[in-house]
Protein backbone atom coordinates (compact mmCIF):
# COMPACT_ATOMS: atom_id res chain seq x y z
CA UNK A 1 0.00 0.00 0.00
CA UNK A 2 2.75 2.40 0.99
CA UNK A 3 4.61 1.49 -2.16
CA UNK A 4 1.59 2.38 -4.30
CA UNK A 5 1.16 5.72 -2.54
CA UNK A 6 4.84 6.53 -2.95
CA UNK A 7 4.63 5.64 -6.61
CA UNK A 8 1.62 7.93 -7.10
CA UNK A 9 3.73 10.80 -5.79
CA UNK A 10 6.61 10.14 -8.19
CA UNK A 11 7.04 12.78 -10.89
CA UNK A 12 7.83 10.41 -13.75
CA UNK A 13 6.70 6.79 -13.90
CA UNK A 14 8.10 3.93 -15.89
CA UNK A 15 6.69 4.41 -19.40
CA UNK A 16 5.44 0.82 -19.21
CA UNK A 17 3.28 1.51 -16.13
CA UNK A 18 1.90 4.74 -17.60
CA UNK A 19 1.35 2.92 -20.90
CA UNK A 20 -0.71 0.20 -19.19
CA UNK A 21 -2.89 2.95 -17.69
CA UNK A 22 -3.39 4.56 -21.11
CA UNK A 23 -4.21 1.17 -22.63
CA UNK A 24 -6.88 0.59 -19.99
CA UNK A 25 -8.32 4.06 -20.70
CA UNK A 26 -8.46 3.16 -24.40
CA UNK A 27 -10.37 -0.05 -23.60
CA UNK A 28 -12.72 1.82 -21.25
CA UNK A 29 -13.54 4.39 -23.95
CA UNK A 30 -14.72 1.66 -26.33
CA UNK A 31 -16.38 -0.49 -23.68
CA UNK A 32 -18.27 2.24 -21.83
CA UNK A 33 -19.10 4.77 -24.52
CA UNK A 34 -18.25 2.98 -27.80
CA UNK A 35 -15.95 5.88 -28.64
CA UNK A 36 -12.27 6.46 -29.35
CA UNK A 37 -9.88 8.78 -27.56
CA UNK A 38 -8.69 11.79 -29.54
CA UNK A 39 -7.42 15.29 -28.96
CA UNK A 40 -7.09 17.14 -32.26
CA UNK A 41 -10.80 17.11 -33.13
CA UNK A 42 -11.64 19.20 -30.06
CA UNK A 43 -9.71 22.20 -31.41
CA UNK A 44 -11.68 22.00 -34.66
CA UNK A 45 -15.01 21.99 -32.78
CA UNK A 46 -13.83 24.91 -30.64
CA UNK A 47 -12.45 27.07 -33.45
CA UNK A 48 -15.69 26.55 -35.35
CA UNK A 49 -17.52 28.00 -32.38
CA UNK A 50 -15.17 31.01 -32.23
CA UNK A 51 -15.08 31.45 -36.01
CA UNK A 52 -18.84 31.42 -36.43
CA UNK A 53 -19.11 34.14 -33.79
CA UNK A 54 -16.29 36.33 -35.12
CA UNK A 55 -16.34 35.79 -38.90
CA UNK A 56 -19.56 33.92 -39.72
CA UNK A 57 -19.23 34.36 -43.49
CA UNK A 58 -15.76 32.81 -43.70
CA UNK A 59 -16.69 29.90 -41.43
CA UNK A 60 -19.93 29.18 -43.29
CA UNK A 61 -18.44 26.35 -45.31
CA UNK A 62 -18.86 22.63 -45.84
CA UNK A 63 -16.28 21.76 -43.17
CA UNK A 64 -17.61 23.82 -40.29
CA UNK A 65 -21.25 23.14 -41.21
CA UNK A 66 -21.17 19.40 -41.75
CA UNK A 67 -17.80 17.66 -41.28
CA UNK A 68 -16.83 19.16 -37.91
CA UNK A 69 -19.84 21.11 -36.66
CA UNK A 70 -18.88 23.61 -33.97
CA UNK A 71 -19.93 23.07 -30.39
CA UNK A 72 -19.05 21.72 -26.99
CA UNK A 73 -18.76 18.11 -28.15
CA UNK A 74 -17.62 15.10 -26.11
CA UNK A 75 -14.19 15.62 -27.75
CA UNK A 76 -14.04 19.07 -26.18
CA UNK A 77 -15.04 17.65 -22.79
CA UNK A 78 -12.39 14.94 -23.18
CA UNK A 79 -9.68 17.54 -23.71
CA UNK A 80 -10.93 19.50 -20.70
CA UNK A 81 -10.49 16.23 -18.81
CA UNK A 82 -6.95 15.88 -20.18
CA UNK A 83 -6.21 19.40 -18.94
CA UNK A 84 -7.35 18.49 -15.41
CA UNK A 85 -5.63 15.10 -15.60
CA UNK A 86 -2.34 16.88 -16.28
CA UNK A 87 -3.07 19.19 -13.39
CA UNK A 88 -3.82 16.34 -10.97
CA UNK A 89 -0.74 14.42 -12.14
CA UNK A 90 1.52 17.41 -11.52
CA UNK A 91 -0.17 18.16 -8.19
CA UNK A 92 0.40 14.56 -7.03
CA UNK A 93 4.15 14.98 -7.45
CA UNK A 94 4.29 18.58 -6.22
CA UNK A 95 5.35 19.87 -9.65
CA UNK A 96 2.36 22.08 -10.39
CA UNK A 97 3.54 25.29 -12.11
CA UNK A 98 0.55 27.63 -11.85
CA UNK A 99 1.82 31.07 -10.87
CA UNK A 100 5.42 29.87 -10.72
CA UNK A 101 8.20 31.93 -12.27
CA UNK A 102 9.99 30.80 -15.40
CA UNK A 103 7.24 28.73 -16.99
CA UNK A 104 7.21 30.79 -20.20
CA UNK A 105 10.17 28.74 -21.39
CA UNK A 106 9.85 25.70 -19.21
CA UNK A 107 12.30 23.13 -20.52
CA UNK A 108 15.97 22.98 -19.50
CA UNK A 109 17.02 21.20 -22.69
CA UNK A 110 15.33 23.79 -24.90
CA UNK A 111 17.11 26.59 -23.02
CA UNK A 112 20.46 24.90 -23.35
CA UNK A 113 20.10 24.48 -27.10
CA UNK A 114 18.16 27.57 -28.17
CA UNK A 115 18.70 30.03 -25.32
CA UNK A 116 16.54 31.61 -22.63
CA UNK A 117 14.50 33.97 -24.84
CA UNK A 118 10.78 33.44 -24.43
CA UNK A 119 9.85 34.82 -27.87
CA UNK A 120 11.92 32.15 -29.62
CA UNK A 121 10.30 29.26 -27.73
CA UNK A 122 6.83 30.74 -28.25
CA UNK A 123 7.31 31.41 -31.96
CA UNK A 124 8.63 27.92 -32.71
CA UNK A 125 6.02 26.26 -30.49
CA UNK A 126 3.21 28.28 -32.10
CA UNK A 127 4.32 27.36 -35.61
CA UNK A 128 4.81 23.76 -34.49
CA UNK A 129 1.30 23.62 -33.05
CA UNK A 130 -0.22 24.93 -36.30
CA UNK A 131 1.73 22.30 -38.25
CA UNK A 132 0.59 19.55 -35.83
CA UNK A 133 -3.08 20.42 -36.06
CA UNK A 134 -3.03 20.78 -39.84
CA UNK A 135 -1.21 17.46 -40.20
CA UNK A 136 -3.68 15.73 -37.88
CA UNK A 137 -6.46 16.99 -40.15
CA UNK A 138 -4.87 15.49 -43.25
CA UNK A 139 -3.96 12.22 -41.53
CA UNK A 140 -7.37 11.76 -39.93
CA UNK A 141 -6.23 12.11 -36.33
CA UNK A 142 -3.25 12.79 -34.06
CA UNK A 143 -1.11 10.66 -31.77
CA UNK A 144 -4.13 9.77 -29.63
CA UNK A 145 -6.99 9.77 -32.14
CA UNK A 146 -5.15 7.92 -34.87
CA UNK A 147 -1.90 6.33 -33.61
CA UNK A 148 -3.29 4.94 -30.33
CA UNK A 149 -7.02 4.65 -31.12
CA UNK A 150 -6.52 3.34 -34.65
CA UNK A 151 -3.53 1.21 -33.71
CA UNK A 152 -5.38 -0.63 -30.94
CA UNK A 153 -8.00 -1.68 -33.50
CA UNK A 154 -5.21 -2.66 -35.94
CA UNK A 155 -6.12 0.00 -38.52
CA UNK A 156 -3.38 0.29 -41.17
CA UNK A 157 -3.85 4.08 -41.09
CA UNK A 158 -2.34 4.22 -37.59
CA UNK A 159 0.86 2.46 -38.54
CA UNK A 160 1.33 4.53 -41.69
CA UNK A 161 0.95 7.64 -39.53
CA UNK A 162 3.40 6.41 -36.87
CA UNK A 163 5.98 5.53 -39.53
CA UNK A 164 5.69 8.98 -41.10
CA UNK A 165 5.81 10.72 -37.74
CA UNK A 166 9.02 9.02 -36.62
CA UNK A 167 10.74 9.41 -40.00
CA UNK A 168 10.20 13.16 -40.22
CA UNK A 169 10.64 13.69 -36.47
CA UNK A 170 14.11 12.17 -36.64
CA UNK A 171 15.08 14.22 -39.71
CA UNK A 172 13.75 17.45 -38.16
CA UNK A 173 15.59 16.82 -34.88
CA UNK A 174 18.79 16.09 -36.83
CA UNK A 175 18.47 19.40 -38.67
CA UNK A 176 17.61 21.64 -35.73
CA UNK A 177 20.03 20.04 -33.26
CA UNK A 178 22.87 19.86 -35.78
CA UNK A 179 26.12 18.92 -34.09
CA UNK A 180 24.38 18.50 -30.73
CA UNK A 181 21.99 15.79 -32.04
Amino acid sequence: MKFILNYLHKEVWSPYVAGILLGLVGIAAVWISNSLLGASGAFENLVGLIGKAVAPAAFDNMYFNFIMPPGITTSVILIVGIFFGGMIGAASSGTLKWGAKDTANSDHQWKRIFGPQTWKRWLVAFVGAIVLEYAAGIAGGCTSGLAISGGMLLAPAAFLFIAGMFASGIVTALIIYGKRY
Binding site: A18, V25, L37, I82, G89, S144
Partner: peptide
Protein backbone atom coordinates in the same frame (compact mmCIF):
# COMPACT_ATOMS: atom_id res chain seq x y z
CA UNK B 1 -11.61 9.28 -19.44
CA UNK B 2 -9.87 12.56 -20.20
CA UNK B 3 -8.67 12.95 -16.61
CA UNK B 4 -7.08 9.49 -16.61
CA UNK B 5 -5.62 10.13 -20.08
CA UNK B 6 -4.07 13.44 -19.00
CA UNK B 7 -2.81 11.86 -15.77
CA UNK B 8 -1.09 9.07 -17.76
CA UNK B 9 0.51 11.63 -20.11
CA UNK B 10 1.82 13.60 -17.14
Amino acid sequence: LGVFFGFALN
